[in-house]
């Protein structure tokens, strides 16, 4: 069975308000050594049936491009792993 870990992040230059807020909290905490931070979303999904890696990748691409990310402002990457 295939298990996928997906990360969706903003493309370069897109406003990341959460990161901005966290960065200012770092400064308040005194962590001036942290130069920058970006945020993203993590998704973990598992496939039901036995399908090939190629098929799983095609399905993943579709859900990433059509639903989990907005390609206008976000990029994604995923890792596929076979689990018992």
């Amino acid at each position: 069975m295939w298990s996928a870990k997906i990360i969706v992040e903003y493309k370069e230059g897109i406003l990341d308000p959460e990161a901005k807020a966290i960065k200012s909290a770092f400064n308040t905490m005194g962590h001036h050594e942290i130069r920058d931070i970006t945020t993203g979303r993590f998704f973990h999904l598992e496939f039901k049936q036995e399908i090939s890696r190629e098929e799983a990748e095609i399905k993943l691409k579709e859900v990433c491009e059509k639903l989990l990310s907005n390609p206008v402002i976000e990029k994604y990457k995923f890792e596929l792993e076979e689990v018992a």
């Binding site: 897109i14 406003l15 308000p17 907005n70 206008v72 402002i73």
Partner: peptide, 15 residues
């Protein structure tokens, strides 16, 4: 989101 109009709407700059 449905692609009927181009572009995207993102968070307000002033947060």
């Amino acid at each position: 989101e449905a692609g009927l109009l181009p572009g995207a709407l993102i968070t307000n700059t002033g947060l």
